[in-house]
Design a protein around this nucleic acid. Structure first.
Lengths: 194, 194
DNA sequence: GTCTATACGAAGATAGAC
DNA sequence: GTCTATCTTCGTATAGAC
């Protein structure tokens, strides 16, 4: 059950996350995805019998857990340090992709297209966002902030960061992200100390 | 050149904006759009010879100007009142659509899919966002806030609101939006007075 | 000017050879 | 278990009848 980075299944998940970032949900096709991951189309359906919803869902969950892990580690040094690391991570993704890559989780949230049932990818996105919120809120309460304020602040941070990422995609510039980052950190220092 | 609300062209634009909100860019097809607007497919291409990019671009621009107008009117009573109206507008869209509708502008920003050229819809989205930011920033400087701070605050507000809309779509709940709204208004009152 | 019928490609998904 | 060929549906876009 150990899974190296050459595992085709893992490669498909990573590729899915990458295409999700750049193209969005509906524009990411299983065909192109398979080609990019150097896997034949049949293999993709072999590993993911649930088809596109399953593969996308797992990609979103994987990304959510990856970011969550980074966040948890960085938050160990306090909320401000944690958020700064969170911001730095997204910033480098934007810069390195020349503002073409966003966040796979938010790509699913924006694109949706799932009518009512089959909301597997959307549910995965909601879980990831809630996980991040919980981590940040816990860190804030640790510095003495009231729970309701901590929860709201955590939600604001995530909303602002994800929104800023989209603004950067539209403007093809890092400026919106940097403006938002500066204010968030400033406010965080005032309220959470440290 | 006067154009009633029964103008098929105008109806196509409104329908495009609505589908964009609910389904996202790539999932919105000209076929379905035409059907919803009760216009034959050929008519759609008659009115929009530029095809999907032109129609989507005009829908985004139209929405941007509509929201911009509302924003400008509401901001006349001061920045806090203006932002409150901005928030109330998005909130009712979320509620009435049961969290299925978002913002057409952000749908385009998230979905993109346009490689390099043909960025017409994306350019329209960027213009709308920049317009809103300018309106809010101007209102803030009117209360004595420094220009750099006003600009950054305006960007934060737009990023947070758009991000919160996506969080609501993911969570199928208004809670994220209300959390973010409360904090934004709170901070705004502190910094901008009134 | 309005609309129907159609061309052509690409999507998700599967069957079945190896 | 891996991969090719194919089914069906839907996408954008257009031709040409009324």
């Amino acid at each position: 059950m150990t899974r190296g980075q050459d595992d085709p299944r893992q490669r498909l998940i990573s590729t899915a996350a990458d295409l999700l970032r750049r193209r969005g949900l509906s524009s990411t096709s299983i065909r192109e995805l398979s080609k990019c991951a150097k896997a034949p189309l049949g293999s993709t359906y072999h590993y993911f019998p649930g088809g596109k919803p399953q593969l996308i869902g797992e990609a979103v969950t994987h990304t959510g857990q990856h970011i969550g892990k980074l966040l948890a580690q960085a938050l160990a040094a306090g909320p401000v340090a944690g958020i700064e690391a969170f911001l730095a991570n997204w910033r480098s993704i934007l810069i390195e992709s020349e503002f073409k890559a966003g966040c796979p989780v938010i790509a699913v949230a924006a694109d949706d297209s799932s009518g009512e049932g089959e909301g597997l990818p959307l549910a995965a996105a909601a879980a990831a966002l809630q996980d991040w919120e919980r981590l940040i809120a816990q860190s804030l309460t640790g510095t003495g902030m009231a729970e309701a304020d901590a929860s709201a602040t955590a939600t604001l941070i995530i909303a602002a960061v994800e929104g800023a990422i989209l603004l950067c995609r539209a403007a093809q510039s890092i400026t919106p992200f940097d403006k938002v980052s500066r204010l968030l950190i400033l406010q965080l220092r005032q309220h959470a100390g440290r």
